[in-house]
Amino acid sequence: MSNSAKVKPYLELRAETQARERGLKEKVMSLEEAATLINDGDHVAIGGCTMSRTPMAMIWSLIRAGKKDLIASRSIMSSEGDLLFASGISKHVITSWFSQGIVWGVSKVMRHHVEGGHAKFDEWSHMSMGLRYRAGAMGVPFLPSRSMMGSDVGERCREETRQMSCPFTGESLTLLPALNPDVAIIHVQRADAYGNAQIDGLQFMDPDIAMAANKVILTTERIIDNAQIRRVPDRTRIPFFTVDAVVEVPFGCAPHECYGTYEPFFDHMGQYAKQVSLDPVAGAADYLRHYYEEPATWEAYLERVGTAEILDASRRGRSVYDD
């Protein structure tokens, strides 16, 4: 395992945080500029969950930039995990579940890479992923849990976890090591130029990931004025001083969903699943060429996804506010 997914000594963690720019300053940039903040070999935590608020535009940018040896972690991985493997930018993921989605069956791309020994899929329980990020956010080296005992999921992570008897009650506990990612990439509905981020609907693990990481790249559907943030500060989930870059990317999760804005692009996802099921290698390569290599901008990518799909996903997305 690379060092970047190991528990960091506390003073090192603090020193890195202290060295970061934390003033109330503008940090708006392009996808391409944001990609330069990520180094080969970094541990990159991905916000959202399954097909929700996936920072797809940022992943698109990282794949185009030809990053190498990234360790990618996420609560649950969907098709973006396929593309990390297929593009070769990551050969190591840490997550609790990895496939496009239940209705499409088991991901053939994930299977090809893991079964063939081309890439590593470290499996932790979902709560354990959450507690690992939370420990990172809390500045403690581990958190205790009553899960991941007795099972092979627990056994397989045994090198990285510890068992202990509670010093108060004597009960058995699993100690889960903190995750302090080098970089978190998170997509939100709105943020200001300083990086105050407001999240509608499901937060998943994103606030913890932002606090735990040593660098945060926010992509956002819209950049709004700081005055609007200050009107409803209770809706801000990520504070500006954890954030290093803000990139405005409408439809930045396409073909996944962004709560209240668009639902998953189901036809696109179905077509993708069909394509990679026929041939996980050639299918994924064709997909990457058509959607990731050839379009020069995110707008050109969206053009290829198509207006009909965007309108359909948007109509369904906004319907959550119909009730």
């Binding site: 997550t95 609790s96 990895f98 079964e115 899929f121 329980s125 979902h126 099972s151 999921v153 627990g154």
Partner: peptide, 19 residues
Amino acid sequence: PEQPKIRLPGTGGGNDISS
């Protein structure tokens, strides 16, 4: 598990819920 015939998606919350 070291050389799986099929790698399935994994636990998700299953391990936690059943624990």
